[in-house]
Every structure is written in C-alpha cells, then in structure tokens.
Amino acid sequence: MNRLFPGIVLVLALVLAACQRQAAQEEAAASPAAPPAAAAADDEVVQARYQCDDGNRVEIIRDGRVARVNMSDGRMVRLGAISGSAPPTWADVGLRLVVDGDYVELSQEDGGRSLRCEQVPE
C-alpha cells in the first residue's frame, strides 16, 4: 500500500489541476469583456475613424495629435502628427497616414505599399 500512495497522490493532483484550469477557462469565457470605450482615457476621444483596405483601421485621437492604427495582423501603432503639414499627415515607424479631404491613404514610407482608406460615419 505504501508504494501505491505516491502514485495515487500524483494522479489526484493532476486531476485537481485539470479541473481548476477548466474552471478558470469557463469563468473567463463567461465574464463579458469591458467595452473598448470604457477603457479609453479622456484624451483619447476619437475625432475621426477610417476603414482601410485589407482590414486595417485608423482612429484620430488626442485632439488630432495621434493616429492610432489597428493593423489587420493585430498590431497597434501610434503615429504622431507632423506639425504644420498640409495635407494633415501622421507618421512613425515607417508608416504614414495622409488625410486630404476625401483622399485618405495609409502607406509604408520609402515607396512601400499604399492602402486606400474611407472615413467611417460616427
């Protein structure tokens, strides 16, 4: 009996761990996620939204000083406004957003790929 005891304890510990993991997964799935607007700070009020080709999205925030790019691969990039630019332009990390009336383009700098964007109505 003494030789079986450590094996039984190990099996029970594994079963208990599996049950706890499953309970935690069920609890996480059952709890609703907080809406994105609730997490936004006061200075991140969205002034404009754009939907770009290939599922990329852009939001102009912080009184127009920042363009928040939600890329189709899940990454998020913040582009800073280029002061005094005409048309309004935001750029950083090799990306550039240009908004000139109805013409809106998200592009890679240095001759990279360009994506057409359209404003999303509020």
Rank of each mutant, 00 (worst) to 15 (best):
R68C: 09
G74C: 05
E27W: 05
A33C: 01
A18S: 13
I60W: 06
V77H: 01
G55N: 12
D54L: 12
A48S: 12
V46I: 15
S72R: 04
I82E: 13
D43V: 03
V11F: 14
I82W: 07
G80K: 06
P36I: 01
N70H: 05
I60M: 06
R68K: 13
E44V: 03
V77G: 02
V9F: 00
Q47R: 13
I60A: 04
A24M: 09
I61H: 04
A41K: 07
R57D: 13
D63V: 03
A18W: 12
L14Y: 09
D54E: 14
Y50V: 04
P32W: 04
A81Y: 06
G84N: 13
G80Q: 11
D43A: 04
Q25S: 11
Y50D: 07
M76T: 15
Q20V: 14
I82C: 04
S83D: 13
Q22A: 13
R68W: 10
I61G: 02
D73K: 01
S31T: 11
Q47E: 12
F5P: 00
Q22M: 12
R75L: 07
V66K: 10
R62I: 00
V77Q: 03
V58H: 00
P36C: 02
N56H: 15
C52P: 05
I8T: 11
V9Y: 00
A39V: 08
V46L: 02
R49N: 06
A29S: 07
R57A: 14
A38W: 03
A81G: 01
S83V: 11
A38Q: 06
C52F: 01
E59H: 07
A37K: 03
A48C: 02
V15E: 07
L14C: 12
R49F: 02
R75Y: 14
A41G: 10
A30I: 01
R78G: 03
A40W: 06
V66W: 14
D63N: 09
E44D: 10
V77E: 05
A17D: 10
Q20Y: 14
V46G: 04
V9G: 01
V77R: 01
E27M: 08
Q22Y: 14
A33Q: 05
V15A: 15
E26T: 03
I82D: 06
M71A: 14
Q47T: 12
M76K: 09
I61F: 02
G64N: 08
A17V: 13
E59K: 05
N70G: 06
A48W: 09
A67G: 04
Q47A: 12
